[in-house]
């Protein structure tokens, strides 16, 4: 079977845990966005924490955003006006473009590293638990949607395997036919699932309560160190 992000989240080593982790990440973001020193510090701290938490999974996860980030940086580098420092035929690299590209790269990477740490170590129910002050219907909707997505992914995976086992993806035409069939079957399954979901909730006396568990806060010292460094970086 495939290794999902959920299993990585559950297995990852959590130096910081609980609602405090979610608050730390979300409250760090404004600081990371506005201050260069905070960005560099955040980049170093959250990347280290992420590598410690999930090892190779960090690199697997960051591969795709880095690809887009690199492509955008190159574009910024080549299209921004300013004093020319390098010429590549029609394309020019300017002092301004280097500065803008570098700023964008560091800012994006720093933000990404903080968010990736959150993604690698926190399941959605934990995030919802941290936001228990949100209106009930939003939390309920988030959790139900999440559960339905879990079901859909499972069903899609099973259908995909069944089609693959019967040579469903050989050739472009067959690939299109199989994908259409799979989408149709998935839609029917999701309708049935919705019906069963409703029945399962009814059978357990659903009266508008969707419980959310509190996750105990852990790693307060590490949180204090990170906050101190980020604030110090910002102030100095």
């Amino acid at each position: 079977m495939h290794e999902t992000l959920e299993s990585v989240q559950l297995k990852s080593k959590k130096v910081i845990d609980g609602a405090i982790k979610v608050y730390l990440i979300f409250l760090s973001l404004p600081l990371i966005l506005i201050d260069r020193e905070a960005q560099i510090l955040s980049l170093l701290m959250f990347t280290s924490l992420s590598v410690h938490a999930a090892g190779k999974h960090y690199f697997r996860l960051i591969k795709i955003p880095i690809f887009f980030l690199a492509a955008s940086t190159v574009v910024i580098l080549l299209i921004t006006d300013g004093k020319e420092i390098l010429s590549l035929g029609l394309l020019r690299v300017t002092d301004k473009s280097v500065e803008v590209a570098l700023t964008t790269l560091i800012r994006s990477f720093a933000t990404l590293s903080a968010l990736i740490y959150l993604v690698l170590t926190t399941t959605l129910p934990e995030i919802v638990s941290a936001f228990r002050f949100l209106p009930f219907f939003i939390r309920e909707l988030l959790l139900m949607t999440y559960r339905v997505i879990q079901h859909l992914i499972d069903d899609a995976f099973r259908l995909h395997m069944a089609a693959e086992a019967r040579s469903g993806y050989f050739g472009f035409k067959r690939w299109i036919n199989t994908t259409a069939l799979l989408a149709y079957s998935l839609f029917l399954k999701s309708l049935r699932r919705a019906e069963m979901f409703d029945m399962a909730m009814e059978s357990r006396c659903y009266s508008g309560i969707y419980p959310v568990q509190n996750v105990k806060n852990k790693g307060m010292f590490v949180v204090a160190v990170i906050v101190t460094l980020l604030v110090a970086g910002y102030l100095l």
């Binding site: 399941t123 129910p125 979901f197 357990r204 969707y210 419980p211 959310v212 568990q213």
Partner: peptide, 20 residues
């Protein structure tokens, strides 16, 4: 899979009692 309606084990077990 038809019965499990919550993402985590704790939520799933707590669902019925919480609603009662």
């Amino acid at each position: 899979d038809d019965q499990i309606i919550a993402p985590t084990v704790w939520q799933e077990v707590a669902f019925g009692p919480a609603n009662l």
